[in-house]
């Protein structure tokens, strides 16, 4: 019989702690696939965040450093400079990357660190139980904005990816999703491009993956996918924002 699909070798054979329908497990698989296809396991270092992906090192079978909350881009900067031939990437959520670690994110990208940043944006704090994130949409309800996000109380969603595209240090900035098969394929290509850029030292690459949090959003996985398409994608439209250093 012909094998048409198999689990990537670098994805560990363990049960993930992610909730049903969560985008993290899919993106983990893509990371594992890309690393395996590129054959760079022996010179790859991943930096995992504080947030739902705090245990990423349990699932993708390479060397990982667990960063303090928000500091992954600083960690990655040091690792890449000390190991210039390595592929160095961070894997971060919206709270880690765009709130507590905004400074490190912008500074590392602006220095043009030769790192890849994978940014999972699900517009909520999943791990701590559904609080408001910097990317929570206007009117979206969370446990810390139970009546919906309001500008006067909570300020506005942060367009961190759009900011990333304006920085001279970034060479590649893109926004993708994993809500259907076609988008999964595009996200994989984006991750591969970002990883290749790190190896080729072309500057900083930034891959946002608009994602769901069915548990935090209090929806079924199916409803969450639909809500994301209806509400998040108009606000965070998919596509490349910057390619080869040229803004789109």
């Amino acid at each position: 019989m012909e094998t048409v699909y198999k689990k990537p070798r670098l994805l560990n054979d363990v049960t993930m702690h992610y909730c049903p329908g969560c985008g993290h497990s899919l993106v983990h698989k893509l990371v594992a696939e890309v690393l395996e296809e590129m054959g760079v396991e022996e010179r790859a270092v991943g930096i995992c965040p504080v947030g739902c992906a705090v245990f990423a090192y349990r699932y993708v079978d390479i060397d990982w450093i667990e960063a303090a909350h928000g500091r992954a881009p600083a960690c990655a900067s040091a690792v890449k400079r000390l190991w210039p031939d390595h592929l160095v990437f961070t894997y971060q959520g919206d709270g880690d990357l765009a709130c507590i670690g905004t400074g490190e994110t912008i500074q590392a990208l602006n220095r043009g660190e030769n790192i890849a940043v994978i940014f999972i944006n699900n517009a909520i704090y999943g791990m701590t139980g559904g609080q408001m994130a910097p990317t929570t949409l206007m009117g979206q309800k969370t446990s810390t904005c139970p009546y919906g996000r309001q500008a006067d109380l909570h300020g506005f969603p942060l367009h961190i990816t759009d900011i990333a595209a304006t920085l001279e240090g970034t060479c590649y900035v893109t926004r993708q999703a994993v809500n259907n098969v076609a988008n999964v394929a595009r996200t994989k290509r984006a991750i591969r491009q970002a990883f290749q850029n790190s190896l080729d030292r072309k500057g900083a690459s930034f891959v946002e993956v608009v994602s769901t949090c069915s548990a935090g959003w209090k929806m079924t996985p199916e409803q969450a996918n639909q809500w994301m398409a209806d509400n998040m994608l108009p606000y965070y439209p998919l596509g490349d924002l910057k390619v080869n250093g040229e803004k789109k």
Binding site: V45, A67, A68, A78, V79, L82, G103, E104, Q107
Partner: peptide
């Protein structure tokens, strides 16, 4: 950022 660079650099 400095200390987290030292943390990660030392970790390697």
């Amino acid at each position: 950022a400095s200390i987290n660079m030292v943390y990660a650099g030392g970790a390697t």
